[in-house]
Design a protein around this nucleic acid. Structure first.
Lengths: 217, 217
DNA sequence: TAGATTGTTAATCGATTAACAATC
DNA sequence: TAGATTGTTAATCGATTAACAATC
């Protein structure tokens, strides 16, 4: 089965919703109910769930515990990943706190920063090292994924260093696009442009894309 | 001209790149150079720029200052927006610092939090109020956009309050989807699922979507 | 049984890419 | 002029939605 980035992202969100924010006493859910909660169409939910190899029952819907179990199977096929936060400024430190312990399979094991004052201390529960030690620590701790929160001006340089050190996946919050070699996975989140996007559509209703709050049929 | 969310987001990124991270001495740029820097195709760049009403010159490319001016015209048609950060935890405070002063047209004028210790103080340069004052302050300061950084469990309740108070656009970082009425603009950024997405594709190369680093022809 | 919901296929929609005439 | 690059159209690709037979 070939799972696209979009489907994969939605599966993660279905799981989060069902495990963390759903009444424990409910055992089953219909595609249209999940759709309503997610702000998607029921068709899309059903299509997404097709990749799981788990099937609901007409009239009863999907059994939540089974559904979550199958999403786990697909998503966490990858076992435990060690993650590093690179750039321990405000954003980097906030992400350490926010992302740590959300997923058992993703563990933030190190932070890196240029600032000598931050090196060799524990910041937000994560040991912080000087940027000079990236290669050493990445190899030593088998760090596969980096969350990049450095200033735009050094983003590409730091990326090259991370890739050279063996990092295989990067989540980039720096405000510039970075280039990576084939074989490395990249996800870019541009916070500034996300805010600008909201602002733009906020009083340009004429341009606003149509709403996406559907019901089925 | 009808500009999609995607095009709009890319225009914002072109502008950021050209204004903040591009050598000052260069006056012109070709579509394929911008494409290489952004990790996109030249075709896509040219198509995106079509909505600007500004035209490049064959053989000379696009004049950067003019290009930026036209992107400004389109993107900031909306003039100044007042923005509030709702939920002044680690993430909220980091975003205050990170997003403030990035765009002259977007000004963070208030933060809100449930914690009485945070109320009536200035946090990261932004005056913080107790959540009880949302309606009053939003109206008083004409706040149009909210950056939502509250825990998932209260996200919908807080959203309803914001919308009732007159907020027209929401950038949601809470880890659950929220529902909004027609007429309000919503952008959701799920940080946890973004990280999970990187992790998933990081050692599932078979599933990885194809790379996107093209050249033209 | 009758009615509701599923899995899946076909149709639609939108976004990206390729191609190329125009043009500097 | 010749060659490179543009704007724009047509072709392709991928994602979403609609429709419906299967089925509980």
């Amino acid at each position: 089965m070939n799972i696209s980035t979009k489907v994969m992202g939605r599966l993660a969100r279905y799981r989060a919703l069902l495990t963390d924010y759903f009444p424990k006493e409910k055992t089953h859910i219909f595609s249209h109910d999940l759709a309503a909660m997610m702000g998607l169409s029921a068709s899309q939910i059903r299509r997404d769930l097709m990749c799981l190899g788990y099937f609901g029952v007409p009239r009863y819907g999907y059994e939540i515990s089974e559904l979550v179990k199958h999403i786990n199977n697909v998503l966490d096929a990858s076992k435990l990943h060690h993650v590093a936060v690179v750039g321990a400024g405000n954003l980097g430190r906030a992400l350490m706190t926010f992302l740590e312990s959300r997923r058992a399979t993703l563990k933030i094991v190190a932070a890196f920063d240029d600032d000598p004052d931050k090196a060799n201390r524990v910041l937000n529960g994560v040991p912080c090292f000087h940027m000079d030690l990236v290669e050493e620590v990445v190899k030593r701790d088998d760090i596969r994924i980096a969350i990049l929160c450095v200033p735009g001006a050094v983003a590409q340089r730091v990326t090259d260093l991370l890739v050279k050190s063996g990092v295989k996946g990067i989540l980039n919050f720096a405000p510039v696009p970075i280039r990576i070699p084939v074989g490395v996975v990249l996800e870019e989140i541009d916070l500034t442009s996300a805010l600008e996007r909201v602002a733009f559509f906020t009083n340009n209703r004429a341009n606003a894309p149509k709403e996406k709050r559907h019901a089925d049929r």
